[in-house]
Design a protein around this nucleic acid. Structure first.
Length: 506
RNA sequence: GGGCGCGUAGCUCAAUGGCAGAGCAGUGGCCUUUUAAGCCAUUGGUUGAGAGUUCGAUCCUCUCCGCGCUCACCA
């Protein structure tokens, strides 16, 4: 290892410990409770008026050290919180006191045993009788100092550089409590979703990530290769076609929470790999799915926050059902003055868009033009939870048309905070119609356009065995977590967001 | 991929075409109830990398690397 000067000083402390017969990285710890448990136990004993000393063996990372001659104070932090350690030469003896001063630095993991007390200022602390190193830190933590204001830890001049924070997330998490909190919330969100779906009879399944044919969405895939099978494989861009095969197999309600991979640009709301929830629900339709979506998000909010109102980018967002519902055609008429029904061809739609002075890539399919209109004129306006429904079939090859109108499908997307959150439809279950749609989509896109939906013969085969009518649903978990934790970039809710590899070693 | 911005000590940030600074951290000392402890002293820099202009570049120019914002792309 190459050491900086600060690291070399700490390394020399390791050598000094070893020379004195002390192990800087002992195999075992004797910690018998968390700092939070120790504090709770002490408060309970106090309330019961117990006089006998309460003992504890605590472990944690040193976050602050205050040396005061024959006294020393320190704060340690573990996963449950923090507690003050109180070192006094009367209890420890000169030698142990000196050992603490000489060998311990902020960032080290320490084990301390002693009696729980209150200091003169009333802070519950561990009066240390004995201590040992659990793990010596060599690299200093990138945080300067903490202050406790009204019980809240305020970190001064802490790690802020986004590049370092993402590249060394371990350091970011170690010093930034609010970052840890985001990921605790994230775990709680996923757990709440599972509980919600499990309670309603949905079966959690796992389907292939490596797929011979990718489908279920319009996106460019990552390609990999299986050496022994001599076969190219794609990382899935969606779970849809596999989950619906399971519906054919007789599992009436299935869901999967997992990773999708899309070889597209990164942005504040896009990451090449992201976490998706999809469920499929036999005998339901998109209206029932809308209601279940409202209930599911409300359930998650109730369980995590105890309220259905959250703040996102300065807006109070109200997740109480029902969400606003906007008919796609009407919505576009209101916002753009264009009635897509009046423009059944790409040429006609393009003409009116040009007439309105809109900027877009000419020569694209009608579906993509409509998509552009949605993204440009509707999506950013949907701050409060909104369902946009009844999509043109052009951009929805797996959705079933509304009764009596082959040009419109039963599909909705949910928007919150100006961002697409979920997408759902009444699933197309007519194999002949599905085959026609695949062929249609194949014509819409160039042969070399990787976004075109490739024909999935096996999926058609599954459907031709008989697929019940059903509603299907997909939602970006990362985006939901962004909304619920008030983060404006997806990187803040991903533990290890993708960054370009650095070439220079410096 | 295009445009704009940024990169200075371990961390957070200053500064200037002429010896690169502060706070915290670190090191040495004082200190028996501190909590951003305090006080005294002090170490620490290839200013992201490389090239150019210049008597002199951290600053100006160019190239490269990385990050951020933004546009494009993106069910």
């Amino acid at each position: 290892m190459e050491f900086t000067e600060l690291e070399r000083i700490r390394y020399e402390k390791i050598l000094a410990m070893r020379a004195a017969g002390l192990e800087p990285y002992p195999t075992r710890a004797e910690v018998n409770q968390t700092t939070a448990e120790a504090i709770r136990a002490f408060e309970k004993a106090e309330a019961e008026g117990r006089q006998d000393p309460l003992q504890a063996i605590l472990g944690g990372r040193l976050r602050a050290i205050r040396l005061m001659g024959k006294l020393a104070f320190a704060h340690i932090e573990d996963g449950s919180g923090r507690i003050q350690l109180f070192f006094r030469v009367n209890e420890l003896g000169e030698e142990a006191m000196q050992r603490f001063k000489d060998q311990f630095d902020i960032g080290d993991y320490i084990q301390a045993s002693g009696d729980m007390i209150r200091t003169r200022t009333g802070e519950i602390s561990l009066q240390v009788h004995d201590f040992k190193m659990l793990a010596k830190a060599i690299t200093p933590l990138p945080a300067a100092k903490d202050e406790v204001v009204d019980g809240q830890v305020v970190r001064h001049a802490t790690l802020a550089d986004p590049e370092t924070r993402y590249r060394q997330r371990y350091a970011d998490l170690a010093v930034n409590e609010d970052v840890r909190k985001i990921f605790r919330t994230r775990a709680a969100v996923v757990s709440a979703i599972r509980a919600f779906l499990d309670e309603r009879g949905f079966l959690e399944v796992e389907t292939p990530i490596l797929q011979p044919i990718y489908g279920g969405a319009a996106a460019r895939p990552f390609i990999t290769h299986h050496n022994q099978l001599k076969q190219d494989l794609f990382l899935r861009i969606s779970f849809e076609l596999y989950l619906k095969r399971l519906i054919v197999g007789g599992f009436d309600r299935v869901y999967e929470i997992g990773r999708d991979f899309r070889n597209e640009g990164v942005s504040y709301k896009h990451n090449p790999e992201f976490t998706q929830l999809e469920y499929y629900w036999a005998y339901a339709d998109y209206l029932k799915v809308m209601e279940l979506t409202e209930q599911m998000i409300a359930f998650v909010c109730d369980r995590i926050f105890g309220t259905r109102k959250v703040t996102y980018c300065g807006n109070e967002i109200d997740f109480n059902p029902p969400w606003r519902r906007v008919d796609l055609r009407q919505g576009l008429i209101e916002k753009t003055g264009i009635d897509i029904q009046q423009h059944p061809t790409a040429e006609s739609l393009e003409a009116v868009m040009l007439e309105k002075g809109m900027k877009f890539k000419p020569g694209t399919a009608r579906g993509k033009l409509i998509d552009h209109l949605l993204g440009e004129y509707l999506e950013p306006t949907f701050i409060q939870p909104t369902f946009l429904y009844d999509y043109p079939r052009d951009i929805s090859p797996l959705a079933k048309n509304i009764p009596g109108d082959p040009s419109i499908v039963e599909r909705f997307e949910g928007f919150v905070g100006g961002m697409e959150l979920c997408n759902a439809f009444t699933e197309l279950n007519d194999p002949l119609e599905q085959e026609a749609r695949f062929l249609e989509m194949g014509r819409e896109y160039d042969v070399e356009d990787e976004e075109r939906h490739p024909m999935d013969e096996d999926y058609l085969n599954a459907m031709s065995y008989g697929m019940p009518p059903q509603g299907g649903f997909g939602m970006g978990i990362d985006r939901l977590v962004m909304l619920l934790t008030d983060q404006r970039t997806i990187r803040e809710v991903l533990l290890f967001p993708h960054l370009r590899e650095r070439e220079d070693a410096s």
